[in-house]
């Protein structure tokens, strides 16, 4: 009886240890979480020609959750130097989606460096393609992003265009 109880206890402990090990091994690390954050941002920014109001509302709501309390944007080639709150970012996205027929933004060559448990930087190239009244627009830029961790989740804190060519 005692042996059976011991065996049961050992089995339960083994199962618990296995579950903990599986969790630790498969748990996404910070880099994976940041990569997912960029993928989520790509999804929010995407606008297909057939998208209706529902998807617009969903995307504008989702995008606000990806940014910290304020996010700095420094895109020198467009003369953009602003700090926007998540609400302002949502309304900017809504405005952009209303103006464009389609929009697709890809973050390529993503390199993530986790500086501390709550701070990270990422470098990538932004490849943006849009269409408006049949006219196709395409642009690409190298950017450096600063990210912060708030309440266990990563958020975008700053976007700065990285000068590739210095006149």
């Amino acid at each position: 009886m005692i042996n059976r109880r011991r065996a049961g206890l050992a089995g339960a402990l083994l199962c618990a240890a296995t579950a903990v090990a599986v969790y630790i091994i498969t748990r996404p690390d910070d880099e994976a979480r940041i990569r997912r954050l960029f993928a989520a941002l790509e999804q929010c920014l995407r606008r297909e020609p057939g998208n209706g109001a529902a998807s617009l509302v969903l995307n504008t709501q989702r995008i606000a959750g990806l940014f910290a309390e304020s996010c700095e944007f420094r895109v020198t080639s467009y003369g953009l130097e602003e700090t926007l709150s998540p609400t302002e970012i949502s309304s900017e996205l809504a405005r952009a989606h209303a103006m464009l027929d389609s929009l697709s933004v890809s973050f390529r060559g993503l390199g993530v460096a986790v500086l501390s448990p709550t701070e990270a930087t990422a470098t990538c190239s932004i490849d943006a393609r849009a269409s408006r009244d049949g006219e196709r627009i395409a642009d690409a830029a190298a950017v450096t992003c600063r990210l912060v961790k708030r309440d266990g989740r990563w958020h975008f804190r700053a976007f700065a265009e990285e000068p590739v060519l210095e006149k």
Binding site: R108, G109, L110, G111, T123, C124, S125, D127, A140, A141, A142, V143, E162, V164, L165
Partner: peptide
Amino acid sequence: TVRLASSRVMLLK
């Protein structure tokens, strides 16, 4: 070709 952040998008100069 000048790489942006990755070699998928490059500038030709």
